[in-house]
C-alpha cells in the first residue's frame, strides 16, 4: 500500500473516530494496523452477522469496496471527513443489507453449528484521500437583487415623464433668446461665452492667457480628470475612507460654481464687477427670464 501522508491519515482517523465514537489515537492505531479494529455494529447487526453464511463473512472486502468510495470521493465535492463517514456508513449498510437479503432463504438449511466468529474485519480500506474542495468555484457573493421590471423601469418611466413635463412647462413659460441678426462689426459689451464656459472666461480674465498660466493647467486638468481612476488607487468607496478625494472634488465643484456664478451675474460691461441687484444682469441666455412680466 502506498504510504499515506501523516496529516491525511490523521484527518481520516479523526473522521473514523468520530463515526465510531472511539478516541482518535485508537482509530489511528487501528488504521495503522497496530491495534485490532473496533467492532462497529450494534447488537442486532452483530446478530445477523453471526447468522450470516460463509460467503458474506469471508469476503467482507468486496462488500465494502463495491460502493466504490474512492471514485465517488474524487468527483464529488464532499469533504474528506464526510467521504470517510459515507464510506463507513455504506460499508455498514452493505453488511447489514447483504445478509438481510440472503439470510432468510438459506437460514433453514444452514446448520447452527457452523460457527462464524463475529469478528468484523476492517470493513473499509482507505484507498485515496481527496482534499476538500468544491468542483465549481463561486464567482461572486450572492447579491440582494430585485426585478428590473417593475422596480427599476417604473420609477425610470415616471422620472422621464416628470422630466418631459418639466421641460415642456419650462419651454412654454421661458422664451429662448433671439437678439438682432449676427453682425461681426458690432461687438456687444460684455461679450459672454455660453454659461458652462463662463467660469473659464472668468478665470482667463485674471491672468493673461498667452502666458499659458491657465491653459496649460487646464489641459493638464482635463488629462488628470480623465485619468483620475488611475491616479486614485484607494479602493475604498465609503466617503469616510476617502476624505481627500471627496475634499478635492468638492473644492473643484465649489470653485467652478463660484466662478460660473460670478461670470453669469457679477460681470458687466468691460468685464467689470457689477451687482445684479443694483446694475442689472448681463446674461442674454435668460433674457426673457430677466425681463419677465
Amino acid at each position: 500500500m502506498v504510504d499515506i501522508p501523516e496529516h491525511l491519515l490523521q484527518r481520516s482517523a479523526e473522521a473514523r473516530a468520530k463515526a465510531l465514537g472511539i478516541s482518535i489515537e485508537q482509530a489511528l492505531a487501528e488504521m495503522k494496523g497496530e491495534s485490532d479494529p473496533t467492532v462497529v455494529s450494534k447488537e442486532p447487526e452483530v446478530k445477523i452477522i453471526e447468522e450470516t453464511p460463509a460467503p458474506a463473512a469471508e469476503t467482507p472486502a468486496p462488500a465494502a469496496e463495491t460502493p466504490a468510495p474512492a471514485p465517488a470521493a474524487e468527483v464529488t465535492p464532499v469533504k474528506e471527513e464526510h467521504a470517510a463517514e459515507t464510506t463507513e456508513k455504506v460499508a455498514e449498510v452493505a453488511i447489514e443489507k447483504k445478509p438481510a437479503a440472503k439470510a432468510p432463504a438459506p437460514k433453514a438449511d444452514t446448520p447452527d453449528e457452523v460457527d462464524f466468529a463475529p469478528e468484523v474485519k476492517v470493513t473499509q480500506r482507505l484507498l485515496t484521500v481527496v482534499k476538500a474542495k468544491p468542483i465549481q468555484k463561486a464567482a461572486s457573493e450572492p447579491v440582494d437583487k430585485v426585478n428590473t421590471w417593475p422596480h427599476l423601469m417604473l420609477p425610470e418611466f415616471v422620472s422621464l415623464m416628470a422630466m418631459t413635463a418639466f421641460l415642456i412647462l419650462l419651454s412654454a413659460i421661458l422664451q429662448a433668446p433671439l437678439l438682432e441678426e449676427a453682425n461681426p462689426n458690432v461687438t456687444p459689451n460684455p461679450a459672454k461665452a455660453p454659461w458652462y464656459f463662463l467660469g473659464l472666461q472668468e478665470l482667463l480674465s485674471y491672468w493673461d492667457p498667452q502666458i499659458a498660466g491657465v491653459m496649460i493647467p487646464l489641459v493638464l486638468g482635463i488629462a488628470v480628470w480623465m485619468a483620475f481612476p488611475y491616479i486614485d488607487r484607494n479602493p475604498e468607496t465609503h466617503p469616510s475612507k476617502r476624505k481627500f478625494a471627496i475634499m478635492f472634488y468638492t473644492f473643484f465643484l465649489a470653485g467652478a460654481g463660484v466662478l460660473t456664478i460670478i461670470g453669469v451675474l457679477f460681470r458687466g460691461p468691460g468685464w467689470n464687477w457689477t451687482y445684479p441687484w443694483i446694475d442689472g444682469i448681463w446674461f442674454d441666455d435668460l433674457l426673457d427670464w430677466i425681463h419677465f412680466e
Binding site: P177, E181, F197
Partner: peptide, 20 residues
C-alpha cells in the same frame, strides 16, 4: 445666427485659441 450666438462662439473660439 444672432448677436448672442456669434459673439458667444467668438469668445469660446478665442478661448480655444489659447490652447498651448
Amino acid at each position: 445666427w444672432d448677436q448672442l450666438a456669434i459673439w458667444a462662439v467668438t469668445v469660446g473660439g478665442n478661448m480655444a485659441g489659447y490652447t498651448p
